[in-house]
């Protein structure tokens, strides 16, 4: 949770602070290869995410894809790109750690992280499903959530520099929608799974207090 929320942003902080601040010419010189690596990262990581079956792995790999967009945003070296990447980092810190918390709640109840085990969580845990939906939608980047602003600004900055980069980065967003909706659909919808024999309980008040600030902040920032 802390790794996804805070530690990942250390790298992009270093790139903004030292890369853009101390070495602007080198940033311009090496921008194409960083674009290339970021786009490869976005598409490859998203495709890898789709074939994962472990709940935590899906979320962990999805953050690789989103940080690719952040790197593209930083190396556009214009206002929209850098601001958008900073915004996306804040948003991703909230959403990614929120998703990890929510998956851990499911793990605490059933002690497994395999997606195939879960089905029909909506029927027994409505409040949990609502919070999960908000966080999944933010992870995808639906308008109205904070990730959308970061992504659209980063890609707008990239469009100013290089159209191909922006288009290929947007392909990564489509793929992120595919795995996000795949995850939510398999876990929350459908009939009750016969393997889920334990009596499930909805979110407790303590869990609600943990997860509500992340959801509310995500929606307010959007």
């Amino acid at each position: 949770m802390l790794l996804a929320g805070v530690l990942i942003k250390l790298g992009s902080y270093g790139l903004i602070r030292y890369g853009l601040g101390l070495m602007p010419e080198a940033c311009e010189y090496f921008a194409p290869i960083i674009y290339l690596l970021s786009i490869l990262g976005v598409i490859y990581a998203s495709l890898t995410t789709i074939r994962q079956t472990d709940l935590k792995r899906i979320i962990a790999y999805s953050s690789v894809g989103h940080m690719g967009i952040v790197t593209i945003g930083i190396f556009t070296r214009n206002i929209e790109g850098v601001e958008g990447s900073i915004y996306l980092q804040i948003a991703h810190g909230l959403v990614s750690s929120g998703l990890f918390i929510i998956v851990t709640m499911l793990y605490e109840r059933y002690h497994t992280r395999i997606v195939k085990y879960y089905r029909g969580v909506t029927m027994t845990m409505p409040l949990y499903s609502l919070m999960f939906l908000i966080l999944t939608m933010s992870n995808i980047g639906v308008p109205g959530t904070s990730n959308y602003i970061g992504e659209i600004m980063s890609l707008a900055g990239a469009m100013e520099q290089n159209e191909v980069v922006a288009v290929l980065g947007a392909v990564g967003m489509i793929l992120s929608a595919s795995y996000g909706l795949y995850l939510y659909n398999r876990v929350c919808f459908g009939g009750m799974s016969s393997y889920m024999l334990e009596a499930p309980r909805d979110m407790t008040r303590r869990e609600m207090y943990i997860i509500a600030p992340l959801c509310i902040l995500t929606l307010i920032l959007g």
């Binding site: 270093g14 070495m23 970021s38 990262g41």
Partner: peptide, 18 residues
């Protein structure tokens, strides 16, 4: 350029670059 390579090689591990 030389210094940038050194910085990116370490920071790219923190940001998961491809």
């Amino acid at each position: 350029k030389v210094v940038f390579i050194g910085f990116v090689a370490s920071l790219a591990v923190k940001i998961p670059l491809y």
